[in-house]
């Protein structure tokens, strides 16, 4: 595997979507190629940023309360209808 082929699979590798055989080929390349190793780590940092920042977005408390209330009401209405 060369640098170009490794770079084309960087996200599939980080997303753990490759077969074990191909993942192993990538790892062999990364061990032998510091430039690709750094690039992969950089992309990993980028994806971790997205996951971390994304997790900070939470449903507002008001929405949570409204949804719970809605379930109560919906169930109550169905119970009376039965």
């Amino acid at each position: 595997m060369n640098c170009h082929e490794a770079a084309a699979r960087v996200y599939e590798y980080l997303d753990r979507e490759l077969t074990p055989e191909v993942a192993l080929e990538i790892e062999r390349h990364l061990e032998a190629c510091p430039a690709c190793y750094d690039h992969f780590e950089f992309q990993r940092a980028f994806l971790e940023l997205l996951a971390r920042r994304g997790a900070a977005i939470r449903a507002p408390e008001e929405l949570r309360r409204r949804v719970e209330e809605l379930l109560h009401k919906d169930q109550a209405r169905r119970n009376t209808a039965e």
């Binding site: 770079a7 750094d38 690039h39 780590e41 950089f42 992309q43 940092a45 980028f46 940023l49 997205l50 920042r53 994304g54 900070a56 977005i57």
Partner: peptide, 26 residues
């Protein structure tokens, strides 16, 4: 595109990402 060649020499680990706030990512 990848930003890596731009930062390779100064910040190869992408530490600058940590300074970007939640709202900006969103």
């Amino acid at each position: 595109y990848t930003a890596f060649p731009e930062v390779q020499e100064r910040d190869p680990e992408g530490k600058f990402f940590d300074r970007i706030v939640d709202e900006e990512v969103l």
